[in-house]
């Protein structure tokens, strides 16, 4: 469903951020993308979201190929791929309901459906009681829940999360992780970038991909059970 084939990415006037990375994420998988800061995690997610194009190789997402999709058609891919960030990127000065409703409205939701669907999504992320609160008055964990609800408006096949717990305390982090697992249980793939190895270790059920200086150095799916991964 998501396939990177020999993908390299070089930013202008920079060394390579990704080198020859290949992996395949199937429908409904839960994947951690780990590695030190600067190892290429965000770049990988941005490539899957087609916010960047690969310098070499091909990124394929749910029938879309980075070689084929025209600029004017990226929106189609975006509706299949939800994304959340460490810094939430919500619209300040609007309520939780308005933030989710805005995303529905701009992606062709029928007008009379906007409010009920936004309400339903907020209940799904456990925020029904706070739907009328202004987002900048919510806690970090609550803001991330709003962002997740917003990422779900187009019913995507995969949820990308770039250090989603990076700004959260332990309690909020556990809450968000539980929410990701709930969403994953409904059949949606989750790819979460994080440099927090303790967090990754506490969810051994998930597949782990590790990047180091732009190279994929470890994939738990290709390591025989029982052996201790990490260095290759």
């Amino acid at each position: 469903m998501i396939k990177l084939e020999k993908v390299s990415k070089e930013y202008a006037r920079r060394g390579p951020a990704l080198r020859d990375v290949s992996f395949h994420v199937r429908k409904g998988e839960f994947v951690f993308l780990t590695g030190h800061s600067g190892s290429g995690k965000s770049t990988t997610l941005r490539l899957i979201h087609l916010a960047e194009r690969p310098t070499a190789g091909e990124v394929r997402v749910s029938g879309f190929s980075s070689d084929m999709v025209k600029e004017g058609e990226i929106w189609k891919l975006r509706r299949r791929v939800g994304m959340v960030f460490q810094d939430f990127r919500l619209l300040r000065g609007r309520t939780a309901l308005e933030n989710v409703g805005f995303a529905l409205e701009v992606t062709d939701a029928r007008r009379e459906e906007v409010v009920p669907r936004a309400q339903r999504l907020l209940s799904q992320v456990g925020l029904a009681a706070k739907s009328a609160a202004l987002v900048h008055e919510l806690s970090g964990g609550e803001q991330q829940r709003v962002a997740i609800a917003r990422a779900l408006v187009t019913d995507p096949v995969v949820l990308l999360a770039d250090e989603p717990t990076g700004n959260l305390d332990d309690r909020a982090t556990r809450g968000i992780m539980e929410l990701f697992w709930d969403i994953n249980a409904l059949g949606m793939a989750v790819i979460m970038a994080t440099h927090d190895l303790d967090l990754v270790k506490s969810y051994p059920r998930a597949r782990t991909l590790e990047l180091d200086q732009g190279r994929l150095v470890y994939d738990s799916a290709t390591v025989p059970a029982g052996s201790d991964g990490g260095e290759v």
Partner: peptide, 14 residues
């Protein structure tokens, strides 16, 4: 710009 960013993020048409 924030609204435009969100629109692009969630897949609004140009």
């Amino acid at each position: 710009r924030d609204e435009i960013y969100v629109m692009r993020l969630v897949g609004a048409r140009d």
